[in-house]
């Protein structure tokens, strides 16, 4: 579905991504784990067109996305749940959902999707007319996910959805990710919470300072001593 080949991204003279190749097959959950500064967010920002790559190719269902602007890229059915949630705090919850469907014209279907998201996140419905800035972190994360779903994407990229949330809320978020995936949406998940992310992943990549150093199924990586040592906080046994 999504294919990244030899992607190099540089900020000024510094290369944040030094030739990354990965593949996201349709219907799967793919995770990318790595430490701070490994280039995880840069990868997602490049795929969605917020950052222009220096070289390499990004293709989506055989369509070349490299160097296109975000507005074109999102029309192909890719969306991003950004790091730090970044809901529009000056818009109401309902408006945030509506703006997720900005490119759609089918008002009746949009209303149905809002209802669907409210059924998935009842807390959001209760707060429909509140400004998004007044929500708690967990609620904002749910709103960010809901907003992304409103574009009826086929590929959802999530940038650290568990960041700064309470363990119970994190559990909820991961359950929802699996639910969304079960509905047929493909997921590219970036996480520092490697343990949870690897558990739900069909395939996972480890990113270290701009390079992919390891890949395998989620359970393989969970069992991998190097990964356990570096990302799961467990001693090699």
């Amino acid at each position: 579905m999504l294919k990244v080949e030899e992607l190099v991204v540089a900020y000024g003279g510094i290369e944040a991504l030094k030739g990354i190749s990965l593949e996201v097959p349709a219907g799967k959950i793919i995770t990318l784990i790595g430490a701070n500064g490994a280039g995880k967010s840069t990868l997602l920002r490049t795929i969605i067109g917020l950052v222009k790559p220096k070289s390499g190719r990004i293709t989506y269902n055989d369509k070349d996305l490299t160097g296109l602007n975000s507005q074109k890229i999102v029309t192909t059915g890719i969306t991003l749940v950004p790091e730090g949630r970044r809901v529009f705090s000056n818009l109401t919850v309902w408006e945030n959902l509506k703006i997720g469907a900005y490119m759609r014209k089918d008002e009746a279907e949009i209303a149905k999707d809002v209802a669907w998201i409210y059924s998935m996140f009842p807390r959001l419905e209760e707060r429909s007319w509140q400004l998004a800035g007044t929500l708690s972190g967990g609620e904002q994360q749910m709103l960010a996910v809901g907003r992304a779903l409103m574009s009826r994407p086929r590929l959802i990229m999530m940038d650290e959805p568990s960041l700064g949330l309470a363990p119970l809320v994190i559990k909820d978020i991961f359950r929802i990710i699996q639910e969304i995936n079960a509905k047929g949406m493909t997921i590219l998940l970036i996480e520092q919470n490697a343990n949870m992310a690897l558990k739900i992943a069909d395939w996972a990549y480890v990113l270290e300072t701009g390079r992919i150093t390891l890949e395998g199924t989620g359970s393989d990586l969970l069992a991998n001593p190097e990964v356990r040592d570096a990302y799961l906080g467990k001693k090699k046994s």
Binding site: I48, G49, L50, N69, S70, Q71, V74, T75, T79, L80, P82, R86, F88, S89, N90, L91, E95, K98, I99, G100, Y102, M103, R147, S151
Partner: peptide, 23 residues
């Protein structure tokens, strides 16, 4: 209005507004 909503969104965060497909 929809255009007003997009104006408010752009004023808050124009990167994410772009990701929403707003020109």
């Amino acid at each position: 209005t929809k255009i007003g909503m997009s104006m408010r969104a752009v004023s808050k965060d124009y990167e994410i507004a772009r990701v929403m497909g707003i020109n």
